[in-house]
Amino acid sequence: MIQNLADGILVGSVLSLGAIGLTLVMHMLRFANFSHAELLSIGAYAALVFDGVFAAILPPLADRIGPLSMTWALVLALVVAVAVTGASALVIDRLVFRRVRAKGSELSMVFASFGVAMIVRNVTGLVFGLGTQLYSKDIVFAVVVSRDPMLLIKPDQVFVLVATLLVMVALHLVLSRTTLGFALRAVAENPVLAQVNGVNLARMIALVWVVGGGLAAIAGVFYGLTNQISPMIGRDLVLPVFAATIVGGIGSVYGAALGGFIVGIAANVALAVLPSGYSPSVPFLIILAVLLVRPNGLFGEARA
């Protein structure tokens, strides 16, 4: 049970990062983006490629950092992956979403995102193969934190949790202390009024995609680090990330952060009761529960 809780918190940190990006996009552009989870996949694979590149250019970079399975090469690759994924999100917006937005309704956008998800997922499968891959083939042994109750934690998992919290604090500071953060929030609240006050809407939308994509890349790499990398990352995470967004309330960054942990913990603790085969169903049950009890989520506001 304690083990489930610990695993849940770790899965939750990945979901939180994904959900923060999704909630920003859903709030600003007002559509449920089914392709957001594919950005996690893009990030994970981009890091895989550049991890190999950096390790080949400078072999010392391939050394592990302390007790982690993570290498300096992967740290650098993570930075590049953030840039690549942010750029990919921007390119996808330019190619598809912006054009559909210009002529269609919000629901056309939802549908376009289905198509985009399908294309990205299968192109990834074509390029990188359908099998699973790992950043490091070294086996990192879990540390026994306690024997009764049994609790095993890998150093990587602690790193992921701490790094996630740091990213969240940084994002919080940007959103609450900088002009950029104010502009971003203003556009999400009221795009027209924000424009009247000199906020460049197109630039803010681009910024949301870059931030959402960057956070997704971090989430994707962390997921790959603690699980494995496969073209199905997007398919497997799309529903949990949506659940986290809905739990937190669409548009609430803090809600999404909290929602990710709630969904992660609930899905893992539920495994103590349910047979493990049912774990993909848990996010849907959480969504149903939220819709029944608090349709706008923990921190969301009603909006038609």
Binding site: A32, F34, L107, I246, P280, F284, L291, R303, A304
Partner: peptide, 28 residues
């Protein structure tokens, strides 16, 4: 009943979710 009175994309998410869950339950 749960989603039609909420914002429109809730229905999209909930129906997507029920499809995943349906397949999952039938498999298990």
């Amino acid at each position: 009943v749960l989603t039609l009175r909420l914002r429109q994309d809730y229905l999209a998410i909930a129906t997507f979710g029920i499809a995943v869950t349906f397949e999952n339950v039938m498999r298990n």
